[in-house]
């Protein structure tokens, strides 16, 4: 059976989640590998959630927030940006390709963009193959 990536997404309620809804309203098809967990703000995404996802076997983690300057809570997404940078370094040290963690700004109107970045991300993870953490478990 071919490899089907498993991706967890954290989408902020005000922009990215609404953007994902917009993709639906516009009936834009994209792969179903990614499941969204709605959080109020991308700033809610604790680095622990990302680690938890990889530990539980995710092949990729996606975080969607409002564009810089647009965060519903003023500055949450700036924190997210910094945390994601830090997490990418940490993942690299752990032997997980930092490309498996992706942060995107998606506004409530950007259904097109949402569908496009999900497609891209799923494709990228497909190329990267299963997460090394999962492989270890399999052995």
């Amino acid at each position: 059976m071919s490899f089907e990536p498993k991706i967890v997404a954290f989408l902020c309620n005000w922009c990215a989640y609404a953007g994902a809804d917009m993709a639906g309203t516009s009936r834009l098809k994209y792969p179903g590998n990614m499941i969204a967990i709605r959080v109020m703000c991308s700033g809610r995404v604790d680095p622990e959630f990302i680690l938890e996802a990889f530990e539980k076997g995710a092949d990729g983690v996606f975080i969607g927030g409002c564009h810089p300057g647009d965060c519903h809570y003023v500055s949450g997404n700036y924190r997210t940006r910094r945390r994601v940078e830090m997490m990418k370094r940490l993942l690299e040290e752990m032997g997980i390709n930092p490309r498996r963690l992706r942060l995107e700004w998606v506004s409530a109107t950007e259904g097109q963009k949402f569908a496009r970045v999900v497609k891209e991300f799923v494709e990228e993870i497909r190329q990267l193959g299963p997460s090394p953490i999962k492989k270890e478990e399999a052995i």
Partner: peptide, 26 residues
Amino acid sequence: EGCGTCAAACPSNNIEMKNYSDSQIK
């Protein structure tokens, strides 16, 4: 306002968001 930035930032995990707790999300 319930954004949860504090909960994600707390280094000792001592802040919970009501009905959006760490354990729920995990």
